[in-house]
Design a protein around this nucleic acid. Structure first.
Length: 752
RNA sequence: UGGGGUAUCGCCAAGCGGUAAGGCCACGGUUUUUGGUACCGUUAUUCGGGGGUUCGAAUCCCUCUACCCCAUCCA
């Protein structure tokens, strides 16, 4: 990760720091303790704690416990645990929104006193009706005009528990016809009778998210309140509250990023809970679940998860990450960490008829490319087990393992070849009689026999039995819709797998690679010496089985989406007249004329500029492009340049004093400082260079400095022209006439 | 449908007017006592579509399209 470019959040943080908006960065991770955190939370944790760490700030862990009916202490613990396990430390103690209830209550009082909040007594259904719809404005409740005293009294009595749930709520008085539904007098407080898991029965009213969240951020001195995309609409309330309460700066700002989705799994608390309730998985820490507890129990490491979070990046586009990316991150991590051992899942007995006696073979735990040391003893005798799949009587082409006429190496031990196949009455292979080559021992092989592969094995009498749990993706569909999409084979249990004894006796690690099978983790809950249980974290990448499958797979390439062309809204009568004038009299091209005709402000601006300098096409072009951009973000009376300024700018371009490229820079400066264009050009000496010989010398210099790119050009890369033009322009501080540069560069390059 | 967002390779994702980064996946090859790893190579003449501005556009302007979010007394 050499030059990893910064994501938009980090860029914003850096900007805020540079402009001295904050002395120190404070972020927060604010989960609601109503479920176990999943890998989506890990992404948020990684962002919030990561940013705080990188910029020398702090990150708070805050339990957003404003809804007593769903929250409890078990989830608080799971959340704390997850953050710690991922390796982060929160600043100070764990925070709780419930600790701020009194402060929040006082803010509410202030809002009421300002006339900005009122107690509403509409029923739940009425409130819904009054809210209107996305296309229809809502209407305000008749209770909205209660006096401040009435509101204060009612709110106070709500707090004291004098009312039943639903009788009254506190609402902000904002705008019932706001196009943003969230701003239609949002609820601030509601009555809840049950006990809160921390505040017990102290409160009868509880703040809503939209009220508690910004204020809690403010109370904690949070600077960057980072949340997911679905809260974009809530940002208006966030700002409204802070502004309306006239809170002392510095204040926090909310920023949103896209939540994590992964294919073949589900990420929401609701859906995970559904799996637990339907007994499809055992509990929150089921190794098939994308919960942190599940991943952890499966054998994922914190490093792998953190790497994953870093790899997928942070952006604002809704996206679904391929589960293969997650699998990569754990393989990548475990590869250089864990010992390799041999295990047999489906044993096939092999009797080595010409071997007698017993020996202990010294075998390294790590392959040559893992820079770690460690050995164990591998018992060897004439009776061993190999994997059933590692022998085939009638092998397909390209099969590397043991066959009636293909020898194979027993890893760390000898080369064997098949002498006889023993079958039972129904024709199943039950045993292989083999012979070994005494001079082929690993490390001192003088047999000269070439084998295609080495396979794993265990010695029959010393091998230990283990249970292995082979986990696979939970759903068979990429985008699961429900329980019907469950992968019925998401868990395969092998009760009597065999493993070399050192794994059980020495226990050098809790994670192993079972060679050629995958990475495994001693189940932290159910493992015992009597019944050792290993979870498969992830299988190894396997090109052999894929190659076989590929042969009978059809190509199902997706057809490109068909594009539907929509209809442009028709012009009004006046617009049509304008369009006609612009395109026919002023000879503007249709697109420009169209843009101008449909936009009254632009049109007016254009006409005024035209009075100053009669060059309709040039004025129209700059108006519909540059001026239009400014008008998108500012109102007409906020822009700092006048039509005359634009006309002057065009005049300079027209006369060749400046190039269009310089004109853009001047325009930027104009809209920033409001200075006159001629002054800017003079002050900065921006006159363009038209002297051919001067430009030519720069061109030659650039060409001689970049032989590699010259070669690219000669090899047919025309786009590289842009590189040379850019370089020449840069060398002349942007002043060289780009048309001439273009001409000369092309000429020179073709000469070579 | 009003508002707010988003579109760059099969999946993520850089890019902010001057040569379309990188990772995953896939595909070849080399090394290998793991059909693993590592290493080398291949994979976007094109950035949702169409126009326009410019010497030059993924980037600026116009327009169309698709998808996501908002009408819980959830967060």
């Amino acid at each position: 990760m050499v030059n990893r470019s910064k994501d938009f959040l980090r860029r914003r943080v850096e900007e805020d720091l540079e402009l001295d908006r904050y002395k120190k960065i404070v972020t927060r991770f604010p989960p609601e303790p109503n479920g176990f955190p999943h890998i989506g939370h890990a992404k948020s944790i990684s962002i919030n704690f990561g940013i705080a760490k990188e910029y020398g700030g702090e990150c708070n862990l805050r339990m957003d416990d404003t809804n007593p009916t769903t929250e409890n202490i078990e989830f608080v613990e799971a959340l704390k645990d997850a953050v710690e396990w991922l390796g982060f430390r929160w600043s100070g103690d764990v925070r709780y929104t419930s600790d701020y209830f009194l402060k929040l209550y006082n803010y509410a009082i202030r809002l009421i006193k300002m006339g900005k909040a009122y107690v509403d007594s509409l029923s739940e259904e009425e409130i819904r009706e009054y809210r209107g719809t996305v296309t229809k404005a809502g209407k305000r409740s008749k209770y909205a005009n209660r006096t401040i005293e009435e509101n204060l009294d009612l709110f106070n009595r709500m707090k004291r528990g004098e009312f039943r749930e639903g009788e009254h709520v506190l609402r902000a008085k904002i705008d019932m016809s706001s196009p943003n539904m969230k701003m239609r007098d949002p609820l601030l407080y509601r009555i809840k009778n049950g006990d809160h898991f921390r505040a017990k029965d102290k409160w009868a009213i509880y703040p809503m998210y939209d009220f508690a969240h910004p204020l809690s951020d403010y109370i904690e001195g949070v600077t960057h309140s980072i949340c997911t995309l679905e809260f974009e609409n809530n940002r208006d309330i966030y700002n409204w509250l802070i502004e309306t309460l006239e809170l002392e700066p510095p204040r926090p700002y909310q920023h949103e990023f896209a939540r994590l989705n992964i294919n073949y799994t589900v990420m929401s608390k609701r859906k995970i809970l559904e799996l637990i309730d339907n007994k499809i998985v055992d509990s929150w820490d089921d190794p098939r679940l994308p919960t942190i507890a599940g991943l952890r129990r499966r054998g994922y490491t914190a490093e792998a998860i953190l790497n994953f979070c870093e790899q997928i990046g942070v952006a604002k586009a809704n996206s679904t990450v391929d589960i293969a990316q997650l699998e990569f991150s754990i393989r990548d991590d475990l590869n250089h960490k864990v010992p390799r051992v041999m295990s047999i899942f489906k044993p096939l007995k092999v009797t080595i008829e010409n071997y007698n006696g017993f020996e202990d073979i010294n075998a390294s735990y790590y392959p040559h490319d893992v820079p770690k040391e460690g050995f164990r003893k591998l018992p060897f005798s004439k009776e061993i087990y190999i994997e059933r799949d590692d022998f085939m009587e009638n092998p397909p082409k390209g099969y590397y393992r043991l066959t009636p006429n293909q020898p194979v190496r027993l890893k760390y031990a000898y080369i064997i070849s098949c002498q006889e196949i023993i079958k039972d009455n129904s024709g199943n292979i039950v045993e292989i009689k083999a012979k070994y080559y005494p001079n082929s021992k690993s490390g001192s092989d003088s047999s000269g026999i070439k084998v295609k592969s080495a396979i794993q094995w265990v010695e029959a009498n010393s091998a230990k039995e283990i249970e292995v749990r082979l986990y696979d993706r939970l759903f068979k569909k990429e985008t699961p819709e429900g329980i019907d999409d469950i992968n019925p084979n998401s868990l395969e249990i092998i009760k009597n797998a065999l493993i070399e004894p050192a794994v059980i006796k020495d226990r050098v690690d809790s994670r192993f690679q079972f060679e050629r099978h995958g990475y495994f983790f001693a189940d932290p809950v159910e493992y015992s010496d009597k019944r050792p249980i290993f979870n498969r974290v992830v299988s190894l990448k396997e090109s052999w089985s894929k190659k076989i499958k590929r042969e009978n797979r059809r190509d199902k390439s997706k057809p490109k989406k068909e594009h539907i062309e929509g209809r442009v809204a028709p012009m009004s009568r006046e617009e049509e007249i304008l369009f006609k004038i612009y395109s026919e009299e002023h000879r503007l091209n249709r697109e420009v004329a169209n843009t101008l005709a449909r936009d009254k402000e632009l049109s007016k601006f254009y006409k005024e500029a035209l009075k100053e300098f009669n060059n309709p096409i040039a004025i129209a072009n700059i108006t519909t492009n540059e001026v239009a951009r400014e008008l998108k973000v500012k109102k007409i009376d906020e822009v700092k340049f006048t039509p005359k300024d634009i006309a002057d700018l065009v005049k300079m371009v027209d006369s060749g004093t400046i190039s269009t490229k310089i004109a853009k820079d001047v325009f930027e400066e104009m809209s920033r400082s409001g200075e006159e264009p001629t002054k800017i050009v003079n002050d900065k000496g921006l006159r363009q260079i038209n002297d051919k010989s001067l430009i030519l010398s720069i061109v030659k210099e650039i060409i001689s400095k970049n032989p590699k790119n010259v070669k690219k050009f000669r090899d047919g890369n025309r786009k590289i022209l842009g590189f040379f033009i850019g370089q020449v322009l840069k060398a002349s501080n942007g002043k060289a006439n780009p048309k001439i540069v273009n001409e000369l560069v092309t000429e020179e390059l073709n000469l070579i």
